[in-house]
């Protein structure tokens, strides 16, 4: 019962402190982002950025987002300023934001440069691994003035992943085909965050060595690799159609042992704290697969 009160007190102390000194963090582009006081009007420019800022405790200060920002529930009712790949600069300016959270790989660089030249503060995100998730939470929390909340979230994530790693990463390896799309059939290499989850769970991505981050392959390559398990997302969060398409290949080990697993794509493909959920699910699935040997 005392804990929340204690936390509130801590926040109060930090707030007083930050009123005098600048808040500065380094973003994923390597630049220093400084605010004179915690951000009050934040616009998140990608679904991933939206999730991160909410998870970092800055949700109340988020005033707008872009299309398809669907998590958490509260983000659904935010005003929109366009889509992540083409946003409405006027709408952004009209909101008078004091912080934009951008996505290096997905947002158009020219539009961001223009907004920057107009004097807006931009924090660039580019999350490549699990570690980036926790550090991003901490840095965004600092900017939003919710450092304590953010630190807790980051710690929870780190601890959860470390726990999984301890339990599963040295278990007997399971070969896995990670399907991120059907029609065309697509997978990812070891650089992708999904593969990190697989590694943590003691799995081996059968296409890990491909040169490109994501690659289009054919059914035949999967038959040739004959993975022990197939892990797929789907169109939408509940759709298992993609897995059913494998059933016609009865020669596949994964099909024979019924190791066709579905993981809601938003919990495994987006580099956000929800990765923990997805990874837990993935580890459970691979453990099931081990049990079916």
């Amino acid at each position: 019962m005392l804990k929340p009160i204690f936390a509130l007190a801590l926040i109060a102390i930090f707030s007083v402190g930050s009123a005098v000194a600048d808040i500065c963090v380094r973003d994923d582009s390597g630049a220093e982002v400084c605010l004179s006081k915690p951000a009050q009007r934040i616009i998140a420019l990608s679904p991933g950025a939206t999730e991160l800022i909410y998870a970092a405790g800055g949700g109340d200060q988020v005033i707008a987002a872009v299309s398809y920002c669907d998590y958490p529930e509260a983000a659904k009712s935010l005003p929109r300023v366009g889509s992540y790949n083409r946003f409405d600069q006027e709408a952004i300016l009209a909101q008078n934001p004091d912080l934009l959270i951008a996505w290096i790989e997905g947002n158009p660089a020219e539009q961001l440069a223009k907004l920057k030249s107009l004097g807006l503060t931009i924090y660039y995100t580019q999350l490549n691994d699990f570690d980036d998730v926790s550090t991003s939470l901490e840095r965004l929390g600092k900017l939003a003035g919710s450092e304590t909340h953010a630190k807790l979230a980051a710690e929870k994530f780190r601890a959860g992943i470390a726990d999984l790693e301890n339990r599963y990463s040295h278990s007997a390896p399971v070969t896995v085909f990670q399907q991120i799309w059907s029609n065309p059939l697509m997978t990812v290499n070891n650089e992708h965050i999904i593969s990190e989850a697989t590694r943590i769970c003691g799995g081996v991505n059968v296409f890990g060595g491909l040169p490109n981050l994501s690659a289009r392959i054919d059914n035949e390559a999967v038959l040739a690799a004959d993975p022990e398990a197939i892990i797929a997302g789907g169109m939408g969060e509940e759709n298992r159609d993609w897995l059913d398409e494998w059933l016609r290949f009865s020669g596949l080990t994964a099909v024979r042992r019924n190791n066709l697993f579905f993981i809601p794509p938003s919990t495994i493909q987006r580099p956000t704290p929800r990765l923990l959920e997805g990874t837990i699910l993935l580890c459970q699935h691979l453990e099931t697969a081990r049990g079916r040997r």
Partner: peptide, 14 residues
């Protein structure tokens, strides 16, 4: 232009 990003590869390949 209005499609979500994860749908794009499928559309472009089509």
């Amino acid at each position: 232009a209005v499609s979500p990003s994860d749908q794009l590869p499928g559309m472009l390949y089509w």
